[in-house]
């Protein structure tokens, strides 16, 4: 049934640290790699070796230029995948019931055998998290690696999403955001994690951690007064050197 299952107690999701993400696309490709031979149809690519190649990807990384008033422009690398919303509009619009949200852990999935490829769920998703596969003509989306996180054929430590496993700067965290005491929840609390487009009313499970404030750059060319704390030089540099040597004995 495409009606939402009511609020699941367990809300598995990702926490993405924009302060740490270097925009390397490691999560993007490992996601594609894992999912192209796993859950559902392969993530196909059209015009793979020609002009304007286009493929299905479940995770993509943008870069934004953000300019605080009166300061240098900053760049924020920004991974974007399904946020496994609590109020997932993609699920309720689905006419076939192919899109569903799991009661057990809140993961939003597509049953590709039911999907008619109408595309409506992608229209309903504010985050561009759903992509139609160009070959199988079914809707693809992040599965939160549901076939990894419970997979008994993988060692315990590998039962986490492929993108989290890959991320070299450790900007991606996975856990239960329904449990206020979980590591991810505490991280969100400590770092002021936020929702994307809260006004859309989707109540995303995934959270983003904001970039920490940057040091503003001095605009003036005038030198600041002697700044290296604790080191004055009343008798000039070589005088200071003498004292330094004396201290060494």
């Amino acid at each position: 049934m495409t009606c939402l299952p009511g609020t699941s107690a367990k809300k598995l999701g990702l926490v993405i640290d924009l302060d740490t993400c270097v925009g390397c696309h490691a999560c993007v490709v490992s996601c594609k790699e894992w999912n192209t031979g796993g859950y559902g149809a392969p993530l196909s690519d059209q015009n793979a070796y020609g002009a304007d190649p286009v493929g299905a990807w479940l995770n993509r990384v943008h870069a934004y230029e953000v300019t605080p008033a009166g300061q240098d422009a900053q760049i924020v690398h920004f991974p974007r995948s399904c946020l496994h919303c609590d109020d997932a509009p993609c699920v309720t619009v689905c006419p076939t019931g192919a899109s569903y949200k799991r009661l057990a852990d809140g993961i939003v999935l597509v049953d590709e055998d039911w999907c008619i490829g109408c595309g409506l769920c992608a229209w309903a998703c504010p985050y561009g998290a759903r992509e139609m596969d160009g070959q199988a003509n079914v809707m693809k989306k992040c599965t939160l690696c549901v076939d990894r996180i419970y997979n008994e054929n993988l060692p315990e430590e590998d039962r986490e999403p492929a993108c989290v496993r890959a991320c070299p700067s450790r900007a991606r965290h996975f856990g239960d955001l329904g449990d206020p005491q979980s590591e991810v929840s505490l991280l969100v609390l400590a770092r002021g994690g936020f929702d994307l487009m809260p006004e859309q009313g989707t109540r995303p499970v995934n959270k983003y951690l904001p970039p920490r404030p940057k040091q503003a750059r001095e605009a003036t060319d005038r030198g600041a007064a002697g700044v290296a704390a604790g080191h004055e030089r009343p008798e000039g540099f070589l005088g200071w050197l003498d004292r330094a040597l004396d201290k060494l004995g």
Partner: peptide, 25 residues
């Protein structure tokens, strides 16, 4: 600004697309 949540820092402008060609979305 609300889409990225970065409005809290300043004006937001897309710089790099995730993939250089257009995608299905």
């Amino acid at each position: 600004e609300t889409a990225t949540g970065l409005g809290r820092i300043g004006a937001v402008r897309a710089l790099l697309s995730p993939h250089t060609a257009d995608n299905w979305v």
